[in-house]
Amino acid sequence: MISESFEYHVPKTIEEALGMIGEFGDESKVLAGGHSLLPMMKLRLASPKHLIDIGRIGALRYIRESEGQLELGALTTHFEIESSSLLKSKCPLLPETAREIGDVQVCNRGTLGGSLVHADPAADWPAAMLAVEAEMVARGPHGERKIRARDFFVDLMATALQSDELLTAIRVSPLPARTGDAYLKLHHPASGFAVVGVAVRLTLAESGSIGEARVGVTGVGAKPYRAEETERLLAGKSPTAKRLEEAAAHAADGVDANSDLYASGDYRKHLAAVYARRAIQRAAERAAGR
C-alpha cells in the first residue's frame, strides 16, 4: 500500500520532461494517469528514485483531426476516448475498446499513452492499436519519430520506446467507407483485464467480399499481435460464416500462449479463435451497414 520514497518532479512542457528523463535516466519513471505505475509502486514492485509527473502538460491531452488523420495526445484518458463524439463517428473502435477497459474511476484517470507504454500483455488498447494500424509518436532528445503499432509492442511489458523518449501522441486513420470494426473480450473475473481480446477493422470491397481485414489480439501471448494468417485467409473472400470460422481458427497460430490459474494456453488459443470469429462477424456486419 505504501511505496518507497522518491523525488517528485512536475515538468510543464514536453521539452522540460525530456530534459528530466535525460537527467535521471534509469532511476526515473514517467507518471501519466498513474493507474499502471502507482499500483506497482504501492506493491513495491517498482521503486523509482525520481517520479516525473507529466500529468500537467496540457499539450499532451487532446483528441483532434488533422490532415485526414485522428490524433490523440498520450495523456488522453480512457473516458475522454469513450465519450468523444469525434471518435464515435470516425473511429468507433476506440470508444468501444475504452468501454471495455476498466471501471469508471480507472477510466477517468488512466491514459492511453500510459497504458500503451506499460504494455501489460492483458491490456485492451494494444489490440485496437494493431487493428487500426496506429502510429505512435515518440519524442526524444533528437526529435520526433513514428513507430508503427506492430513494431511498438516488443515483448512482455516492453515497447520500442527508448529510455530517453516520451510517447506524445497516437495517430490513427479514420474509418474508411464500407468498413466496420469491433472489439470483443473475455474479462478476467477479478482484474477485468482481457483473458483474450480481439479487435478487428474490416473493409468490404464493392463486390461485398472482404477487401482487407486487420485483426489485433491481446491477452494470448507475451505481447499483442496481428493474426496474420487469419487476415490472409479473409482477404478477398466473401464473409460467409464458414469462411470466417475457418479464418478465425488461425487467430493464435504459432503463438506461445500464456497460461495461468484462470486459463491455460490451449484454452486461450481456443478463445482467440472464437472471439476473433465473433469480432470479425460483427465488424463485417457493421461494414455492410456503412
Binding site: L38, K42, V104, N108, R109
Partner: peptide, 9 residues
C-alpha cells in the same frame, strides 16, 4: 471526476 484516491498521490 470519480477517482480512486488510493491510486493518486
Amino acid at each position: 471526476h470519480a477517482v480512486k484516491s488510493c491510486t493518486l498521490l
